[in-house]
Structures are given as C-alpha cells and as structure tokens.
Design a protein around this nucleic acid. Structure first.
Lengths: 115, 115
DNA sequence: TTAGTATATTAGATATTGCGAATATACTAA
DNA sequence: TTAGTATATTCGCAATATCTAATATACTAA
C-alpha cells in the first residue's frame, strides 16, 4: 500500500519490460553464465547486451561476479523466475487474446512505419 | 522460449511498470469498481487515470463494463494479483537493498534537476 | 611492453512515455 | 431540448528508453 512499495514494484517490472532482458533472466534460470555465453546464446549485439546487463544490475535483478577476463551473471532471487513462470501460465490461459494483442501492436508498428 | 512469449511477457510487465497502474490493479483486488471510485481512492487526476485505464485495457490487464453513466473496471485474471503478491514477498526479502535502489534513483533525479 | 580478448561506457539519433490542459463523447435528468 | 455528470481522447512538451557506432577499460598472454 505505501507508495514506496509500488515504486519498487514498478521498478522491477520496468526492468523486466523488455524481451531481451526477459530472455537474459530466463537463460540464467539454471545458474550463472558469463556475459559472452549469454550474448552468444541469445544472438545479441555486444554493446546492446551490456546495456541491458547494466539495467538489470542497477535494478538488482542480477548480480555479477568477475573472474579473470569474464563477468558471470546470475539471477539474484529465484522468486523472479517464479514470476516468469506465472506469466507463462498467464500466457497459456490467454493465448488467443495474447496473439491478437501482439498482432495489433504489430499492425500499429507497420502503420506507423508506413506513414 | 519462443520470442512471441517473451514479447508477450514484456508487454504485461510494461503495462505494470508504473506505480499508478499497479495501484489501480491492487485497488481492484477484491472486485470491480467504477472509474470514479478508483480515481477518488487513489487521488488521481481524471485525465491521467483515464490514460492509465486505456493502457491497462489495451494490454488486456483489466476489462471494463459500462453501466449507465459509469464504467466498471475489474482485473481480468487473478494470476496477476498473484504476481503482485510475489513481488511483495520479493520486496520484503530485499528491503534494505530496495531502499538504497530507490534512494539512488531519487538522488539521480535531484542531481539531474540541479544541473 | 604489445596484442588480443571480454566487457562496459559514451554519444547521438530516434522512438516512446507520462503529464496537464483542453476538448470530446456518452449518458441522465429536468 | 438543455444542463450536469462520468469518462475518454487529443495535443504539446519534457523526460526516458533503445539502438548503433565508436571508444574505453580490464584482464591475459607473449
């Protein structure tokens, strides 16, 4: 109820409000990985990935550990994985709607680009 | 794993990535309410609230029902409430960190404003 | 030292978001 | 019809977010 709590939640949600960052968290589901491996598995641009890492670090979603030349990332709290799992259930329960939502967004994108 | 799913999750998170929208979802926890009541309880600007409603509708977070003069909103799926509850647990498990994160953001804001 | 590898940061262009003020729409009551 | 109430939409602007390209930093190996 206090506004601080909502601010906090909003912050976490914002940190997760990007497909790439969700992908990063998901790929870390089974334990830590070096940045390079994450980048490779997800097929990301190095600089772009690093920016997303930075956001996830700032919002305390992941922690990082330096070992020699590389940086290992891991998810700080498995509760977040739980959240993502609930979202999957949510998705399964609303597939058709979900599709139409994404499609509409896609159409809007194309309209926007076409103008 | 498919990118569509991540897009979908990111969309939901984005919809919730604002304290006001979280507040709206929370105030609807026990059932539907007319827009006016939500606005009153949360002390929102009418236009601003309506914009947030619009976003929550577009992302299928809430559904709306018109009755006479007013519009009743409700949360579409209680799973989302569950997500918010998990976030509360997450918050409790990380209070000090959370505080420092919010504080840092606050400081940045002030620095930004001061320049 | 120098070269190479892994990662982070900065800069700048573009897109998106959030807000308040004003206006529009839909309904109700007289 | 007119006036009033409830809600939604539009506009303009400031703030944020995202991306790519370029550069910087930290470490390792020779």
């Amino acid at each position: 109820m206090p506004d601080t709590l909502r601010q906090f939640k909003a912050n976490i949600f914002q940190a997760l409000a990007h497909p790439t960052r969700i992908a990063i968290v998901e790929v870390l589901r089974d334990g830590e990985l070096p940045a390079g491996t994450i980048i490779e598995r997800l097929g990301l641009e190095q600089a772009n990935a690093s920016q997303h890492f930075s956001i996830l670090r700032a919002k305390q979603i992941v922690s990082s550990r330096k070992e020699g030349n590389q940086v290992f990332y891991s998810v700080r709290d498995p509760l977040l994985i739980e959240v993502l799992d609930i979202m999957r259930r949510y998705f399964q329960a609303h597939v058709e709607e979900a599709m139409s939502v994404l499609q509409q967004i896609d159409l809007l994108d194309k309209d926007g680009a076409a103008k």
